[in-house]
Amino acid sequence: MRLSVDHVTKYSYDQPVRGVVQSHRLTPSAFEGQTVLDWQIEVSDGTPGGQFRDGAGDRIQSWSVQGPVTEITVRVRGTVETVDLAGMLKGHRETVKPEVYLRETKATWADPGLVALAAAVEGAANPLDAAHRLSGAVADAITYSPGVTEAQTTAAEALAQGAGVCQDHAHALIAVARHCDIPARYVSGYLCADAEGAPHEAAHAWAELFVPGLGWIGFDPANRCCPDARYIRLGSGLDAQDAAPIRGIARGPGAETMLVTVSVAPGQSRSSGEGPSSGQSQSQTQQ
């Protein structure tokens, strides 16, 4: 499936800031499930930093913008050819050991509620079955409901509310998986809105669980499926903050507002899907 992406993030400051530095994880991963046909990242008035592939296989690049500046636009455009691998991350070059993804973070800490949810693995036929059960349990426990959670919400809080967005689903699945000693990580990427117009965001997130013998497998509890040809994978991390496509810092007192528009559409034509996105963590703090 050929998917085109147009992802624009506009940062505005009510007072000029002295400068901005960002670290991007905005290039699609290289694996058998996707091939980049063309891809461009533009940062208004930005100077690109050195780029490299980190141990998790993500392409990372930093950008700096010298101020004074009141507005910065980050625009990502490109086309990716995708194949449905039933969630498997085949042929992905990475050197981080799966055990590293057993580490707890604040957002993915398993509280008693999540520990109870993890009981879903009982009676699982094999590790893959266990992963499916956990993903299903998370989907049942947290209803998709935009606006009730925010970027800082933890897995435990989302479960307590019983509602959240893809970030919360991913965090909850990671928490229960790690509790069961299954390495799990947060994945950020894009999702092409399907024909029926199901309510999910174009900027998307899901989880990957490590299954011995098969490797990393994606699970998207928000959509009760494994990533297929509609998904574009950007990068991974221990949690949403660690996997954020954009991490940035502005120097200066100006208050920041951020507007994100993402469209992911089949073929070359770009269609709707615009609007502020709640699905992807694009943390930017100020100093």
Partner: peptide, 9 residues
Amino acid sequence: PGLMDVYRS
């Protein structure tokens, strides 16, 4: 900010 990216590149 950004030091680790410079370091790693």
